[in-house]
């Protein structure tokens, strides 16, 4: 790599602006699996749900930690698999909820 390229951070998660340096630092600070690094850096939690960055991170972590990819607790995608507009959700289901008692939480 030429000087010019090396001056710029290497982006691993483009949805959440996470760089290679961030990933290496989190691994060195004790994140030993993807579940950890995901929460630590927000990586994999963007609109693509990690489809771009998780495969990259699996490789980086496996090499750095000397682990097999299947030891890295690969996170499950969560619904909705792709971001969906609220307006669409509201059309999708009959959303009447009657008499559901809640207590004051949150």
């Amino acid at each position: 790599m030429g000087e010019e390229v090396r001056k710029h951070p290497i982006i691993i998660c483009r949805c959440r602006d996470v760089t290679l340096d961030d990933v290496l630092k989190a691994i060195d600070e004790g994140c030993e699996d993807l579940e950890c690094i995901k929460r630590r850096l927000g990586l994999g939690m963007g609109p693509c749900q990690g489809r771009t960055c998780i495969p990259l991170v699996i490789g980086i972590m496996a090499r750095r930690l000397g682990k097999k990819p299947d030891e890295l607790l690969i996170p499950k995608p969560r619904a909705p698999v792709t971001p969906i507009p609220v307006s669409l959700l509201l059309k999708s289901v009959d959303v009447k909820v009657e008499g559901e008692g809640g207590d004051e939480n949150a």
């Binding site: 939690m45 749900q49 969560r78 619904a79 971001p83 969906i84 507009p85 609220v86 959303v95």
Partner: peptide, 26 residues
């Protein structure tokens, strides 16, 4: 999955613009 509209719908009466934004994760 029915939770998503159930949670958002009542809030759209105070925040109508919520209709135009997208749910990322549940």
């Amino acid at each position: 999955i029915d939770f998503m509209p159930k949670a958002v719908k009542p809030l759209t009466k105070f925040f109508p613009w919520l209709r135009n934004i997208r749910v990322l994760r549940y």
